[in-house]
Design a protein around this nucleic acid. Structure first.
Lengths: 204, 204
DNA sequence: GCCTGTGAATAAATTCACAGCG
DNA sequence: CGCTGTGAATTTATTCACAGGC
């Protein structure tokens, strides 16, 4: 379920606030969903709530973390150390929650050797060699669109089984490899759509 | 519909390749959806296909662009000029497709005056004044999570009606303001979930 | 009494399958 | 004959509502 991370974030906030117990209604409000949906989602992880009381915050955090696979730290490689690659390498949410950035790659030779967030940048040509020496199961593609498919093929051949793609193209991956694509401009376009609806509505 | 931008991207590729006409089956393959869904989506924009032939690429591009509101260029402000803000300001997809970055803001005084992608960085304190002098209808929030809600309230008060939020928090906005949130670490967490399922499957 | 867990009901999205036009 | 447009069927997601435990 794609909503589990949202719950986890809300629960983390509650933990920091010192809250020990929470009802489905309160947590649902924090997560931006309906109470019924939250209960349904949580119930399919097993029975974790106490009737008449609510959910134990700490226990739920542990349970969702386990379900999301945070037991082991996943090795992550970032390909493309431009503005976006930099931002991702420094992103607190990555290193903080069970992910370890273990390798960076760029095609530009002047970038090679540079340290970003404490990790050295390697040349794209050395991708296979470096990946084979590190435990990396997830690759982040932050290259231009034109290079994305080629990079994708190479990391998959090197044994990566999860890909997070920021290039605005539809990548082809073999079955068994999980692919998620985030297109930043796509989100803006959706906003523009709503803006236009507002203008059209005002005109009518 | 959130899929229209995906179709538009696929069509742009076809245009560059010199293709004039495309069937629902081909386009659906490029966009990563089923042919039936594509036809249904397109049909609710009106009748644009030619039976027995397919769709005219150029005409479809124009039609989808219009539906997404690309007729006028939307003014965009980016708040938070860290790594992510930089990446967004330089993102080709923004300036290229009907969006104009018209203002940048940061809390850090040493950043003020800096030019990013040809636009000057203003101090966060001057947000209201600068926004009132520029046509800005969409704000991008690329600040730390702790500042996001406050920034959000201020840009909304300044007349912004669409918000694209990259801070990992659930923002509250009044009705009439469209909000979309992209949580980069959330996407990684979903990948981790699938990785864990693979491991669990192998163990069984 | 209050809140969870869950089957049943409802709503939304997707796919099927075919009529109709070029 | 091929491909679109679309109602009907199917699947999937969400909400309702209440039984059951604390």
């Amino acid at each position: 379920m794609a909503r589990l991370p949202v719950y986890l974030r809300a629960l983390t906030v509650l933990t920091e606030r010192g809250v020990c117990t929470v009802s489905s209604e309160t947590l649902a409000l924090d997560a931006g969903v309906g109470p019924a949906m939250l209960r349904k989602d949580l119930s399919l992880l097993g029975r974790h709530g106490t009737r008449g009381v609510g959910y134990d915050v700490g226990y739920l955090v542990a349970e969702i973390s386990r379900a999301l696979g945070f037991a082991q730290a996943y090795g992550v490689a970032i390909v493309g150390v431009g503005n976006l690659g930099h931002a991702l390498a420094n992103y607190a949410g990555f290193t903080g929650r069970g992910f370890a950035v273990r390798a960076l790659f760029d095609r530009d030779p002047t970038r090679v050797g540079e340290l970003v967030a404490g990790v050295a940048v390697h040349h794209l040509d050395d991708l296979e060699g470096v990946l084979s020496s590190r435990e990396v199961s997830i690759a982040v593609i932050a290259t231009p669109a034109s290079a994305a498919q080629q990079v994708c093929d190479r990391v998959v051949a090197a044994g990566v089984t999860g890909i997070l793609n920021f290039a605005p193209v539809l990548l082809a991956v073999p079955v068994g490899v999980e692919l998620r694509t985030v297109d930043l401009s796509l989100e803006l376009q959706v906003l523009a759509f709503y803006e236009q609806r507002k203008l059209a509505g005002a005109r009518r």
